[in-house]
Design a protein around this nucleic acid. Structure first.
Lengths: 338, 338
DNA sequence: CTGAAAGCGCTTACAG
DNA sequence: CTGAAAGCGCTTACAG
């Protein structure tokens, strides 16, 4: 089943079929319809390999460079990324690195494989050093799920501030007024924004934030254990704990369980990110869902566009794409006790 | 940089270069060396797209059909699978499904995309129904990380019995004699094998298994909570708990934490699989690591071989590939208390 | 707006 | 064992 079979079936030239399937312009409506009908009838599918040989510019090679911490995102990124990549006839590569030395090696491997662009999930998305290393080799870079996009680097993300604000409003709507917060690692970009979103939500409801109800965490489970213990040692016990990621929310859940505090009857706990652990623990954690698959799709689309523009001599401006998040209401949250 | 550049550099014909890079026979040692040297000097890389156009048989399309529970494996599978896939110039697709209806739709989408073969991670790898559905459409199937391979379906896996045996021996070597076990979901294939491996390890050391130290779980965190609570209510407390997966080990850890039992000082806890949760919780869980990336690589290689054999009119026998596991000693295990 | 020709980089026959 | 020719299925110029 080739382009020529479709052309014969539709009674047009092969070039017209090529134009239609590529979505190129310069095709009359009548021709387009005939071709599209034939494509449907014959169940034609482009041969991406053949396409790639001829149109060098289409065969963009895109790498995803990740380090351990973001592994939980990875499969979801791949779901969207692979789909988009096969649609664009681009090639997707996965490369893992750890530490700075490992990073340099990984960049070398990617270059040897001929990458044109690299997508960086967290936390590498916020490493100026990594970005510069890649750019020095002429590689196009895109930051995925970063909280603070750099003005000169294309990004795909959700709004962390708005996410935290939405969660805080949700808790307040459930009747909670005594809300504690577990902050994330000060080194990571989402930390500040999520905390500010929380403060904004409290403030707009006229609620105060007690200093002993704010605990410092590091986004790890272990830090969540310590933070939760600290919160429970406060003079008054909050009716809800908003942890700024799911790992720490899961830890808070474990601590509550150990203290025989029933969740959500006596205490509401919620997180952020909707990673695997949120649905692993029990009760499952109410959290802010990042549309990671969608973000992977968008990332591949944007970076391939940018690569193509660059190959044809252009100097495309960075694109910043903001996607909507979703508040996932699960069993770890409930109305405030009377 | 093409095959012709290499040929010119080496002073041979392009066909000779093609033979060398493909690893085909019929090349004299002298020629081979000259070509290999030039490849190295010029840093030549095959253009997989071009290769794929000519050798039709290479352009195998492989789908990975997964359902939610195995999502934690997915990124690791992709790491190995993508690498192998790009080496073989095959195409990898990802498709998710939930429930039986979703499964039928997913199979339809995969067929529409023209898959030749489908890799099934757990738990779909053990669904005769799914396998038959795919086979009815002429699709080659491979079961990944199944515990009980079906005689007529190719598989890539580790030995669950040996894994559980190794962990049990490890605990015994640490001085533990009072070892409790949390079983998995009776519906899943690894459950029985892991339990048998545990029994074999205990038996060969002349240790008895107390009935009240064996708890039934379902592989979920929640079931692990209940199972651990039950174990702690036994008349005597074990010095080690071997949970048959990491989710349940994490739950046991949470229960121990709640009861102020120090891990690993007063209690050793270990799991199986080495999924993300094993390194999320604290202390990190000692567990049996499945080499998932390697398994992804092997799965793609085997299924592409099988697809090619079938395309050329052959009727290849199913292949069963067993990979070695690794015991990951982390902080949740330690010597038995005196 | 449409199509016949040339060529992408490789491999499959075919001939020596 | 070695290589010149033809062709994979598509797209990029080029001509109408």
């Amino acid at each position: 089943m080739t382009i020529h079979d479709v052309a014969r079936h539709a009674g047009v030239g092969s070039m017209t079929v090529s134009r239609v399937i590529r979505g190129a312009g310069n095709v009359s409506a009548g021709m387009r319809e005939k071709v599209e009908a034939s494509v449907r009838v014959l169940n034609y599918q482009v041969n991406v390999a053949a396409r790639a040989t001829r149109s060098r510019s289409s065969a963009a090679r895109v790498g995803i460079l990740y380090s351990n911490p973001s592994a939980s995102y990875l499969s979801e990124i791949m779901v969207g990324g692979l789909e988009q990549s096969s649609r664009l006839a681009s090639h997707l590569m996965l490369e893992r690195c750890e530490g700075l030395a490992g990073q340099k090696q990984a960049v070398k491997r990617l270059l040897a494989a001929g990458v044109d662009g690299v997508i960086l999930p967290p936390p590498l998305c916020d490493s100026r050093q990594t970005i510069n290393m890649l750019r020095a080799e002429g590689v196009t870079v895109l930051a995925l799920a970063t909280a603070r996009p750099m003005i000169d680097v294309s990004s795909v993300r959700i709004d962390d501030f708005e996410g935290a604000l939405a969660m805080t409003r949700h808790l307040i709507a459930l009747g909670h007024r005594d809300i504690a917060f577990i902050k994330g690692d000060p080194q990571h970009t989402p930390t500040e924004l999520r905390y500010e979103g929380f403060l904004a939500g409290m403030s707009e409801a006229g609620l105060t934030v007690r200093p002993d109800w704010v605990a410092q965490g590091l986004f790890t489970y272990r830090s969540g254990l310590a933070a939760a213990e600290k919160l429970f040692e406060a003079r008054l016990r909050p009716s809800a704990i908003f942890a700024s990621n799911d790992d720490m929310a899961a830890a808070a859940l474990a601590v509550a369980h150990g203290r025989q505090i029933a969740v959500p009857r006596d205490l509401t706990i919620c997180g952020f990110d909707d990673t695997a652990v949120a649905t692993t623990v029990w009760p499952e954690v109410t959290t802010i869902h990042q549309p990671i698959a969608e973000m992977g799709r968008a990332a591949v689309r944007l970076i391939v566009d940018e690569i193509r523009a660059r190959k044809t001599g252009g100097d495309p401006a960075p694109v910043h794409h903001l996607l909507p998040f979703t508040l996932m209401e699960r069993d770890s949250s409930g109305p405030a006790p009377p």
